[in-house]
Design a protein around this nucleic acid. Structure first.
Lengths: 217, 217
DNA sequence: GAATGATGCGTACGTTGTACGCGTGGTGCG
DNA sequence: CGCACCACGCGTACAACGTACGCATCATTC
């Protein structure tokens, strides 16, 4: 299960450390990311890492910002609200590929790449024609939606991990009393029965359309 | 700074352990909640706790569910959508009082109290007149909003902790180039300048109204 | 009074992040 | 050509942390 293990014993620099750390977190979850584990993966001993990385926290921050680089920024000719939409969807795609990222997103002050995304979104809201204050709220609403949705999905996957989703859900279902919790049971069942539809984009559009409508009174 | 320190050396049972743990987490953050620290606070030694609590993870789950008990469930005569609104606001209030809770919310399978809240919300959506599938999405949208919003606010507070909010924000602002990130700077400045309005309820209503509108085509 | 079970706790271990300082090899200057 | 220097890798060590294990103490029951 060794994560891609980029050819070990290349000179070792911050870049390589961060990328290997991302590979481990992707493959085995962020809990498996130990400084020792990371050093092993790179073919070095633990303390060698500390020549290139201040500490684990800074490393995690770097990983987040590295991942943020993969988020697409729509071209300048894209209409503001459509651009916001695309940017959100791209962010979600990146989070799906790096499920540990949303959980760390909020723990660190934004790095260079995240700042670029903040700037893009805020600028797009500025150009959107929405009242300024509504843009402010819209920014938070949209960021919150992307982050929250992905977090929820990630935690579900995480708690499953080894066993199938059904096993866990069944176990949870067994703790429910059919008399007292019919709606909850039905809801979980809907998840088990597969696609409950493109919830993410539906709510995203609902927020964006709602903002436009609010501006129109 | 010793958290309320309920009269130590009472007989020690699960209830008391959970409540003291909550007090510590409230007062000093969840990172300060160590099994040893908790034992100290109660006037016992570490291993005594393990007679009443399986392990730390189970303790955290119990804390979350205990906190969930404080969320108000509107009366049966409250109109569904209004009830959902009130329930969300009450949840937010509880999260504000226990800032560590939203971060743990997703880590554990729901306990008895959380199940009750799921059931209430889903039942209310069922009674709301919204198409069933829209209710399903609405449930997630609303839960996500409450959780995400509070999480974001909590992480901000947490990263401040000792120093004033201004210090941190100023430091962040200094990392911004006024030429390249004018919108980001303006946005942070708006936060520093105080109330940017009742963002939470505004977006909550936006979501709820949006759902109703979607149902009406 | 002897057996039983619940409860507190002393000791100890494995895992984690990381401080400190030594050794070594390449590089630039005299 | 040799010597000083410095960047880099790493061995050792320590302070948290969660928690396994088993003994000691007490109250209860027969």
């Amino acid at each position: 299960m060794t994560a891609t293990s980029t050819n070990a014993r290349a000179p070792l620099d911050a870049e390589r450390i961060i990328e290997t750390a991302i590979a481990i977190a992707d493959a085995e979850g962020v809990d498996a990311l130990t400084m020792r584990r990371l050093a092993d993966e790179l073919g070095y001993k633990v303390m060698a890492l500390y020549r290139h990385v201040a500490n684990k926290d800074e490393l995690l921050a770097s990983m987040v910002d590295e991942v943020a680089a993969a988020i697409l920024v729509p071209g300048a000719d894209t209409p503001p609200l459509q651009g916001i939409r695309e940017h959100c969807i791209s962010t979600r795609d990146v989070f799906v590929r790096h499920p540990w990222a949303p959980g760390l997103w909020l723990h660190h002050t934004p790095g260079a790449n995240r700042i670029e995304h903040m700037e893009y979104l805020l600028a797009a809201f500025g150009r959107s024609g929405l009242p300024h204050e509504l843009g402010h709220h819209g920014y938070h609403a949209v960021v919150n939606h992307v982050l929250g949705y992905t977090l929820q999905a990630q935690k579900m996957d995480e708690s499953i991990d080894g066993g199938s989703i059904d096993d866990l859900a069944r176990a949870f279902m067994d703790s429910l009393d059919a008399e007292r919790h019919p709606h909850t049971i039905a809801h979980v069942q809907e998840h088990l029965d597969g696609d409950t539809g493109p919830s993410f984009e539906l709510v995203l559009d609902l927020i964006l359309d709602g903002l436009v409508r609010l501006a129109e009174h």
